[in-house]
Amino acid sequence: MSPRKIGCRTHDSKRNGTVCLYTAFDTLTGEVTGKVTDNQRSKEFLSFLKEIEKKTPEGYELQLSLIV
């Protein structure tokens, strides 16, 4: 691949070594909570949401923005 050519994905490409990054940003305190997983399944995502829910004080709302 030449330096000027943008990489392309082929039908048989593998995503070896990729990970999923989940982050949450508390706009009030500026605290960032993150989690890195090897798999991209709903199980990992739900465990991250439960972790954030435990850290959220009673009476506060969570707003989600998903970037895929």
Score class of each variant (00 low, 15 high):
residue 1 M to R: 12
residue 2 S to E: 05
residue 3 P to N: 05
residue 6 I to D: 05
residue 6 I to W: 08
residue 6 I to K: 11
residue 7 G to T: 07
residue 9 R to H: 10
residue 9 R to N: 09
residue 10 T to L: 13
residue 11 H to G: 05
residue 11 H to N: 08
residue 11 H to Q: 09
residue 11 H to P: 00
residue 12 D to E: 09
residue 12 D to Y: 10
residue 13 S to G: 01
residue 13 S to E: 06
residue 14 K to D: 05
residue 14 K to Y: 09
residue 14 K to M: 10
residue 15 R to L: 11
residue 16 N to D: 14
residue 16 N to Q: 15
residue 17 G to V: 02
residue 19 V to S: 05
residue 19 V to A: 06
residue 19 V to D: 05
residue 20 C to Y: 15
residue 20 C to P: 00
residue 21 L to I: 15
residue 22 Y to V: 06
residue 23 T to W: 04
residue 23 T to C: 11
residue 24 A to N: 01
residue 24 A to G: 00
residue 25 F to Q: 03
residue 25 F to M: 04
residue 26 D to L: 01
residue 27 T to G: 04
residue 27 T to W: 14
residue 28 L to M: 08
residue 29 T to I: 00
residue 30 G to I: 01
residue 31 E to S: 08
residue 32 V to L: 07
residue 33 T to W: 02
residue 33 T to L: 07
residue 34 G to I: 13
residue 35 K to A: 09
residue 35 K to T: 07
residue 35 K to C: 10
residue 36 V to L: 14
residue 36 V to I: 14
residue 36 V to D: 01
residue 36 V to A: 01
residue 37 T to Y: 13
residue 37 T to W: 14
residue 38 D to Y: 13
residue 39 N to F: 14
residue 40 Q to V: 10
residue 41 R to E: 14
residue 42 S to Y: 09
residue 42 S to K: 14
residue 42 S to N: 08
residue 42 S to Q: 11
residue 42 S to W: 09
residue 43 K to P: 07
residue 43 K to H: 10
residue 44 E to L: 06
residue 44 E to R: 03
residue 44 E to G: 06
residue 45 F to H: 03
residue 45 F to D: 02
residue 47 S to T: 14
residue 50 K to G: 00
residue 50 K to M: 09
residue 51 E to Y: 15
residue 51 E to F: 14
residue 52 I to P: 01
residue 52 I to Q: 05
residue 52 I to G: 01
residue 52 I to W: 13
residue 54 K to R: 10
residue 54 K to M: 14
residue 56 T to S: 02
residue 56 T to D: 02
residue 57 P to W: 07
residue 57 P to G: 02
residue 58 E to A: 11
residue 60 Y to T: 11
residue 60 Y to C: 10
residue 61 E to T: 11
residue 61 E to W: 02
residue 62 L to T: 07
residue 62 L to K: 13
residue 63 Q to T: 15
residue 63 Q to A: 08
residue 63 Q to M: 15
residue 64 L to N: 04
residue 65 S to H: 12
residue 65 S to G: 06
residue 66 L to P: 00
residue 67 I to V: 15
residue 67 I to A: 09
residue 68 V to N: 13
